[in-house]
Amino acid sequence: MTQMHVDLTAVAYLVAAVLFILSLRGLSSPETSRQGNIFGIIGMVIAVVTTIMNPEIVSYDWIIGAIVIGGAIGFVIARKIAMTQMPQLVAAFHSLVGLAAVLVAASAFLHPTSFGIADAMGHIHTASKIEMSLGIAIGAITFSGSVIAFAKLNGNMSGAPIMLPARHIINILLGAGIVGGIAMFVVDQDLEIAGVHIFWIVTALSFIIGFLLIIPIGGADMPVVVSMLNSYSGWAAAGIGFTLANTALIVTGALVGSSGAILSYIMCKGMNRSFISVILGGFGGDGGLAVAGAA
């Protein structure tokens, strides 16, 4: 890659990132909302085309095939879905972003050289190990959490909160397992426990905690949860963005991450619910609110 190509690529990603900012800004008010959607589309086209122009991308068949199939499915769903089913559709879409983040992080782990994040010996750089494991963990939580949110909103699962006994202890242990596993992976890239690579153990624990964090939250609070999961998908994207040293991904991830968190806070205020108590339904340190409610 020539210097000029590298610079042009960086500028194009920056333009895409700015368009995404304008898109979110546009969606905040009715007059500019449609324009905002169009800015988002243009930003996405620029990001995708810029990436495909990268000289390291040489094989297009699968790329085009996957875009055509996925795009057609997405488009048909968007046209056919009833407006009343919008919240669960958004939840379902979040689960796909989470899963995509998991797959990208997994392929970076399996094939670090094509992402340019390993030395000649195949050792992944320390920073990249931290970023990719955070990316896969948050992506996995987004996926499994969104699946539950979808099932609750769509009526495949009762909207009533499911309270496991000792759920806080289980969650704390799982969380500690994830953090500890990431630390072990960063120290020793090839660590295996009982024949399973530590990276996959972290992934599995993250999928499980995603389920457990959302099942205790009641159906009425689900829209807030969907917005929180949106925020998570942003953080996952940012993690992968650091791994790839890609400005568009980092900016977009941060943007989606923080705006999603703020939006869920605003939604809670709108519903006259305390943000903390909604989140505590799942995360709570002591579950005092839930217990008080039951008693």
Partner: peptide, 23 residues
């Protein structure tokens, strides 16, 4: 709508997927 556009934008993760599928 804001949530759904944010969701669409976070699919910019496709950039990483393209790099993975490129070789």
């Amino acid at each position: 709508p804001l949530m759904s556009v944010t969701n669409a934008i976070s699919s910019v993760i496709i950039v990483g997927a393209l790099i993975a599928a490129g070789p």
